[in-house]
Every structure is written in C-alpha cells, then in structure tokens.
Amino acid sequence: MLLAIDAGNTNVVFALFEGRKIIGRWRIATDARRTGDEYAVWLMQLLAIRGVEPRQVTQVIISTVVPRALHNIGVLCRNYFGIEPLVAGQGAADYAIDIDVDEPRSLGADRAVNAVAAHAKYPGDLILVDFGTATTFDAIDFNGAYKGGIIAPGINLSLDALVGNTAMLPRIAIDVPQTTSVIGRNTEDQMLIGVFWGYVAMMEGLIARMRAEIGRPAKVVATGGLAVLFDEAVDFFDAVDPDLTIEGLAILAERAAS
C-alpha cells in the first residue's frame, strides 16, 4: 500500500492507496512543531480502525509547502513504517514537467503535483483553480508544462480579515447565499453576499483573462476543499476533482517505483 501525505498550510492530509484506489483519508491541522511520535499516536489508531497494519504500507510519498513539517513527517515514516519516504520534486519523485516560469524552484509542491495529475487526467490546455489557504490559478499547456499562474487570498482568509478588522461584524460560515438577490437585507446576508459572490466575480474575471492570454480553448479544473461548494453556484468549472493533489502524489510514487 502507498501512504501519500500532503502537508498544506492549514491541514496535513494522509491518504492510503491500494493501487490507484484511495481506501482511507485523514487530515490533521498543520503544526510544524508536531513531532513524529505525535503523528504516530494519531495515525496508528486510524489505521488500526481500518484494519491496516504498518507493515502493509510499503511506500510513502510526501508533498509539503511547510518545510519545517517535513523533518517530523520523515521521522514518522522511518521510525514507524521503516520506510525512507519519497519527497515530491526530489530524486526519483521528480515532477518531470517543464516549469516555465522565472523562478522554477519557488513553485509550491502542491501546485506542481496538481499539474502532474491534471495533465495525466485531462487533455489539452488547463486552468487549475485550487481552493486552499490561498486560492491559486495555474496555467498548464497541452504538453503538460507549467506556464505560471495567480495567487489570491483564500476566501476564509478574506473573511477573517473582514471580521478581524471590524468591531461589529459577526463571524459567519461560508455557504451559498440562500437569497437570489445581491442586495442583502441584514448584516449577515450582506457579508455572505459580499464574500461569496465577490469571490465568484473575481474567479470569473481572472479565468476569462487567463483564457484570453492562453489563446486556445482551456478546460477549468477545480480542486480543494471549497471547490464543490462553488460548483453548486457557478457554471465555469469543466471538472471538480477534490483529490487532484493526492492523486498526483500517487502518480509520482508509481513512476518512482517503475
């Protein structure tokens, strides 16, 4: 079995694969100070619930945008699974794609892994929208080359900034507004309309500009935690693929093993 670990700025996702099928998925809040032993106490219990023994895990691959977390996750892999993990973008787990930007080494591992997975799954030019702590928009050409993109504040960061810098606005949950009107009749509705439909308008505008600059038809693929929520309200996603990053790690691990 393959254990794929994606350490993002907000959560660390652990996914267990049998072949290309995900048979278990767990997440824990990202904390660079969390030790390998602490990860093990948590993860081993979850594996046991699924009836999986550590010895059944034969390969581990890690992707991280939190460099300080890599050491402790590596300790988890070596001490509790007896495996030296692959690291996305390094050695046998090299991305093997053209990263055609000014500073290729600055590209986040999650975005590179998304590019690998998206090119393997969807033909042609692509625009990837990943809803995470930040929302990223990435352009992948028909050859699988990463051509650049956009980084915008995530919708929850935007909401946190709004609430944290005002004295009287309440904290609200992100959801599709229940009213069809964009003129809110109370404070909570006005906030939700502003955050949600404002974000939709930003996405529409940026995707349209990216498509115009690419100059060829481009599919829009959405991933990340809020992709499904936005898909309920918009029609500009050609595909919603919540497991894109994890599947990209499985592709890299499979290539490394061949």
Rank of each mutant, 00 (worst) to 15 (best):
G154R: 01
I99Q: 02
A109E: 01
R111G: 05
G132D: 11
N143A: 14
I155D: 01
A152R: 05
A145V: 02
A118K: 03
S158H: 00
L128P: 00
V129M: 13
E103N: 15
L162I: 11
P123G: 07
G108P: 11
N143Q: 15
G149E: 01
I140Q: 04
L107K: 03
A134M: 10
I99A: 08
A120N: 12
I151G: 05
A120L: 06
V116F: 10
R111D: 05
G144L: 03
N114E: 11
V116G: 10
I99R: 04
Y122K: 06
T135I: 13
A117F: 10
P123H: 07
T136Q: 03
G132H: 09
F131N: 06
I127K: 01
T136C: 04
D160H: 12
A112S: 13
A117G: 09
K147Y: 01
D130H: 14
A145Y: 02
L126H: 06
I150D: 01
N143Y: 09
I151W: 06
S158D: 05
L128V: 15
D110H: 09
D160L: 09
D160T: 12
A134H: 09
P153R: 05
N143E: 15
L126P: 04
A117R: 09
V113L: 10
T136A: 05
D110C: 11
A118V: 13
I97M: 12
G132P: 08
V163D: 00
A109H: 02
Y122L: 03
V129S: 06
V116P: 10
V163R: 12
D102N: 13
L159C: 06
D100Q: 13
L162G: 08
H119A: 14
D138C: 14
A139G: 00
I155H: 02
A112L: 11
A118R: 04
K121H: 09
G108C: 11
G149L: 00
S106W: 06
L162D: 06
D98K: 14
L128S: 02
V163Q: 12
F137E: 01
G132S: 11
I127V: 14
A139K: 06
P104H: 09
I151F: 08
P104N: 10
G148E: 02
G132Q: 09
A109P: 01
F142N: 11
A139H: 15
V101G: 04
A145E: 03
F131M: 13
A109D: 01
